[in-house]
Nucleic acid binder design. Structure first.
Lengths: 132, 132
DNA sequence: ATACTTGCAAATGATTTGCCAGTGT
DNA sequence: ACACTGGCAAATCATTTGCAAGTAT
């Protein structure tokens, strides 16, 4: 589901309305190269409504949010990335390639007994560049 | 450094004062079996001062805080645990045994290029029990 | 017409800051 | 004495909630 019309159909399919605000949020997420904050997505409009819309769009599976270290949560289309790693030194986030993610998940499952997706809470550490 | 007097010496060694509030915070952390919130550590006393003391004690390396999923940060003595995994379903946190932690860190380093301690931001996922 | 949505104000939870009185050294 | 601390009020940041007015279907 990578097209705006398809997403709007999903919205209608859930008995929800297609409003200008929702169209704008989805369009902004579609051409964003990274997860955006609610404030960025509100873009001067009403923040509270933006949070409400993001929550609604998450509840129907179109949107997801990730906590990249400290600071506000960031939103993205739910199909966009497999999982995240974030650097707590430079603040940059790296999407994990599916094979790398799978290998890490296997290690976590085997050694800690946890099933971790790293989509909502990423791996936080120091990236290659910041290890100097 | 597992004794209260030793920690108080560290406080003095940094030119800081040993106040009742600081002694109480350190004593509480010493016999806590898990990381505690600032509110728990304030225990009816002044929350703002407690936050300030925790920050001071962190700055001299005695204390550390961890973000176990959503909710307030939690504080622990910095020597206490190697790293954490937290379950976003039941909310429980599991300290990682050093060998398990090392294996996971190796996988993260190899496959993502990140150096992750999991002491400040843990591995968040679903624990064995919650996977039903 | 009738829900569903918006916009604005106000509340909430976690944490920080300003300021002055209090206290460890 | 003097600088470091404590306590209290108020500010800040991210997010949520209440409610009356607006709009998609």
């Amino acid at each position: 589901m990578t097209s705006l019309p398809a997403m709007l159909n999903t919205v209608r399919a859930h008995g929800l309305r297609v409003s200008t605000a929702r169209r704008l949020v989805l369009a902004a997420l579609l051409d964003a190269g990274e997860p955006l904050t609610a404030e960025q997505l509100a873009a001067g409009g009403d923040l509270a409504s933006t949070y409400r819309n993001l929550e609604t769009l998450e509840s129907i599976g179109l949107v997801r949010h990730v906590h990249l270290g400290h600071g506000p949560g960031r939103y993205e289309l739910s199909g966009r990335s497999a999982g995240w790693a974030a650097c707590d030194t430079c603040g940059r986030a790296t999407p994990l390639a599916p094979p790398a993610l799978a290998a890490i998940q296997r290690a976590v499952r085997e050694h800690a007994g946890y099933e971790a997706a790293f989509t909502h809470f990423p791996i936080v550490g120091r990236c290659e560049a910041c290890r100097t």
